[in-house]
Computed example of a mutant assay.
Amino acid sequence: MQIEKLIEKIKHYRWLSVGLLIPIMVIGLLLVILVKQDTAPSSVGLVSSPQLNTGKKTEKDVKKMAGNDKKMTDKETERKDRITVDLKGAVKKPAVYTLKQDSRVNDLLLVAGGVTDQADTKSINLAQKLTDEMVVYVSSIGEDRPVEIVGTKAHDDVDSAAAQETDKININTADLAQLQKLSGVGMKKAQDIIDYREQNGKFNQPEDLGNVSGFGEKSLEKLKGSVAVD
């Protein structure tokens, strides 16, 4: 009898315990959830959203763009500080070269590997400053053509002298119209020049023009730089 009563009591308290345990577990679970929500750090604004960042540049992107702009500026500045020169003649590597703006002929020849054994080094001005679009020609030994630097005063003087030489009128070959281009020479004097050379042969020097009627010392002095006999 005592055993049966004991078993009945255990069954009675078991269901009572289960009935009390369930509400306690539910309450405990709710408390845990609430505590976790209160203690969890807010992540709002910390997660980068692709949609929210559309059109915005990060600090890394800004630095990268600034670096690219600086590189482009440096390249533009470098191009402005460069000149292009055409090197020809007795050099080891004749070609078109791009150098710094203040470069000299010596710098150009160093880049080109120097001159050949046939180069006339006496005619080279190594200190000559180069300019953009210049043509430099290094002559060979025995060649009657010194270093040619287009655009310099020396070259301009050579061109001017050549132009003046070309403008001279050859009194041994000029026709009637050409001879009349000479200062103070009309149709009659031009014909006299032609008649003289046909009768006496060509003029050996400009001063021989004094043998033609109508040409005195003053006329010869005036025509001195305008006539040629070659």
Rank of each mutant, 00 (worst) to 15 (best):
S213C: 01
V91H: 07
K189H: 01
K181H: 06
K75H: 05
K224H: 05
L99M: 11
K56Q: 13
D195W: 07
M72H: 13
D195Q: 09
V227D: 00
T152V: 09
E76Q: 13
T173Q: 08
K92L: 01
L179A: 09
R82W: 04
T131G: 15
S42P: 04
I10W: 05
Q205K: 13
L29F: 07
S17G: 11
R82A: 09
T73E: 05
K36A: 15
N211M: 06
I193K: 12
M72W: 09
K56D: 13
L46I: 15
P23R: 10
V32T: 14
R14Y: 15
L99E: 11
I7N: 10
Q199E: 12
K168H: 02
N125L: 07
A127E: 14
N125F: 05
V18H: 09
R79F: 12
V227K: 06
D195I: 10
T116G: 10
K11N: 13
L108R: 01
V212K: 14
R14K: 11
K129W: 09
M65I: 12
L109R: 00
L34S: 06
F215S: 06
D159S: 04
E198H: 14
A161W: 01
I22Q: 07
Q118R: 09
Q178Y: 03
Q180P: 15
R79H: 07
A162Y: 01
K100Y: 06
S226D: 02
Q2I: 10
F203I: 10
A174S: 11
D102W: 01
G186I: 01
K100I: 07
A90P: 14
S183R: 08
G114Q: 03
I27Y: 09
K188I: 02
D120Y: 00
T121M: 03
G201M: 07
A161T: 03
A90H: 05
N170D: 14
K188P: 10
N53M: 15
Q199D: 06
K100R: 12
K71I: 09
E143I: 11
L130C: 11
L220T: 00
H155K: 01
S139D: 12
K93N: 09
T84K: 07
D74E: 11
N68V: 10
